[in-house]
Design a binder for these strands. Structure first.
Lengths: 253, 253
DNA sequence: ACCTGAACACCGTTCAAGT
DNA sequence: ACCTGAACACCGTTCAAGT
């Protein structure tokens, strides 16, 4: 079933289907080499260091040669996102709630290890083999709990989105990573102070009170691991509520 | 209190503090004019249409003149994010759960109206007056439910993240917006078909089954308003669970 | 068929010079 | 003091020419 569709060439290559070239010299590269080089540059210098020229020179080729393998820089970024993802944790034998927590935390950790991922705009549904493996494992972990497939996929979206949000927060406000620095702000401490100076208590009554109460002081307000767990448990409680509603025989909404 | 800190000039301008120039000709522009022009271009042509040159020509000035008002293009993008945000809904008299739903949906709608927002990488904590107003109202809506300020802020993060995730999904997979098109995929239907062709059922057992079961067919799988509500209720159930735990006198975790 | 090198049309940003 | 215009160092991408 499912008539074979014409896929964009990068996606084909992502799945290991490099075209078999019959005539002419053998290719010197493949998508993996190019993408790995790009990832190494991004890890070392950030996404700004990644240009067609810099990637090409790292793999020892002229910039224009890359277009034999990648249709555009966009394509290259797409490939980077899939390649940088490692294997998902094994759900076998784990209660669904434990696995979902593990899964989400692992996603967040990947984002923190490669902060440039947060800058690659496209939060597209996965098409690459590695990202899709994560989705597969999450579905497997939710097998038999009484949700339908669409619901499980929605759960996956919500958890992925949360991992993204939290990672973005940590890399900007927290951690000393120099993302927020060019705004002249170095951490949660500063952030609270800046806000305190800016806010008119009449226009921003609730927020002013929170800031003056120290809600953003130190690691408490926005950035530590406890905060991550907080939001995660929020979501998991929601999932649990849904599951028990389904178990008690209620209709889908 | 809170010693006045040196803020980056854009942020100062965001708060309406244009520098009072004593000598020389009066400035012909202000941050608002420049930012509005940039927003109009982005709405019409997408973020790729926004260059210092295009913005400058729209306000009738040489490209280099913009640097009197904005330190860099980055700054301009930051200003765009704040300026594009409208006033938050009024929480007065609404139950917290209704307001949170309204607030999150309104955030999502803003993102859908200005899809280029999703491409502006930085998911930074808000520093501009408009985005901070949204935070203020959410805190107000949660007044008296028994959460502390840090928890309320965490709730805001989770909801904002969810709005972002959902909006990204809708603009890519759904709606006919041409984001996903250059991957050759036009909607949820196609997405399911493509996946069906790609997946090896042995390597992706759960996902293959879901796809073949039609979980991604039509609007059901990933993209409609029901899906948005689904995730939202998930989160709100989580918040409600937390609130009732607090109400029954449990300690903070 | 792969790869190169020259070339094109653009970027963001600087700086000296005008008013 | 604001704004301009020339200039700089880069981009991503094309295409004809080499092998």
């Amino acid at each position: 079933m499912a008539q074979e569709r014409a896929l964009p060439p990068v996606v084909e290559r992502l799945w290991g289907r490099e075209p078999v070239s019959r005539r002419g010299p053998r290719p010197r590269l493949d998508l993996g080499m190019i993408t790995s080089a790009a990832i190494e540059i991004a890890d070392a210098e950030g996404l700004t260091g990644v240009s067609m020229a810099s990637v090409a020179s790292r793999v020892g080729v002229a910039a224009t040669a890359l277009y034999r393998y990648v249709g555009s820089k966009e394509d290259l970024l797409t490939a980077m996102v899939d390649f940088v993802v490692s294997a998902p944790p094994d759900p076998a034998g784990r209660p669904w709630r434990d696995y979902l927590a593990l899964w989400t935390r692992a996603q967040r950790d990947t984002l923190l290890e490669h902060p440039w991922l947060l800058q690659i705009a496209r939060l597209t549904p996965p098409l690459g083999p590695r990202r899709l493996l994560w989705l597969d494992r999450l579905l497997a972990a939710l097998d038999g709990v009484g949700l339908d497939d669409g619901e499980k996929i929605n759960v996956a979206s919500a958890l992925t989105g949360y991992a993204l949000t939290d990672a973005a927060l940590v890399t900007t406000v927290g951690g000393g990573e120099p993302q927020f620095d060019d705004a002249g702000i170095e951490g949660a401490d500063d952030y609270g102070e800046v806000l305190a100076g800016l806010l008119d208590p009449e226009a921003y009554p609730a927020l002013s009170a929170a800031v003056r109460g120290g809600a953003l002081r130190g690691a408490e307000g926005w950035v530590d691991d406890g905060d991550f767990r907080f939001g995660l448990e929020l979501l998991l409680d929601g999932v649990e509520a849904l599951i028990s509603r389904r178990a008690s025989g209620e209709d889908a909404g």
